[in-house]
Design a protein around this nucleic acid. Sequence first.
DNA 1: TAGCTGATTGACT
DNA 2: GTCAATCAGCTAA
Length: 191
Amino acid sequence: MILARTFYRRAAPLVARDLLGCLIVSRRGRTVTAGLIVETEAYLGPDDAASHAAFRPGSHPLFYGDGGFAYVFPAYGLHVCLNAIVEPAGRPGCVLLRAVEPVTGVATMARRRGVPADSRRIASGPGNLCRALGVTLAHNGSDLTRGALTIGPRPAGGELRVSCGRRVGITRAVNRRLRFWITDNAYVSKL
DNA sequence: TAGCTGATTGACT
DNA sequence: GTCAATCAGCTAA
């Protein structure tokens, strides 16, 4: 099961919230790694000073493109961050994936990260998440509805308790409450 | 061409 | 709490 593109053609905060609990799947050759999304942040258009759409023109082709594609960018030269582009073509917006709870290929993710397999920090944080799932800049612009990197709907389960608050790790527009996470989940990057 | 910045992380005081 | 690693893309000249 894979989320349809229509899922992504909505406002960023809505998609960010609905992505919580969904399953992101990464395939590298025969190796499959997957995890439940437990923490996201929404980024808007030029009005949102923290959004790359506002200060990174190079991101515009993807930001203003159709939803359901991956936007991967390098941060501080060392790390990469994974986003899902949202909103229909012509409208900017994306959702940053900040943390996942490992489900499949846990040993592989732990090895990529160099931490014990039972660590809660395997994929907590945008940079760690990408390393654990093997996401690189080569995934930039790839289609999230097919291919090596896909996101599936939330596995059947009970109620999901969601918290929201200020975004973290940014230096602009900090006050917007556009960060969403699963309440009390041990794998979120920050409390 | 040189200098600066950042949606980070991990190591260290 | 501080700090360095490291780079694409922007800005100023």
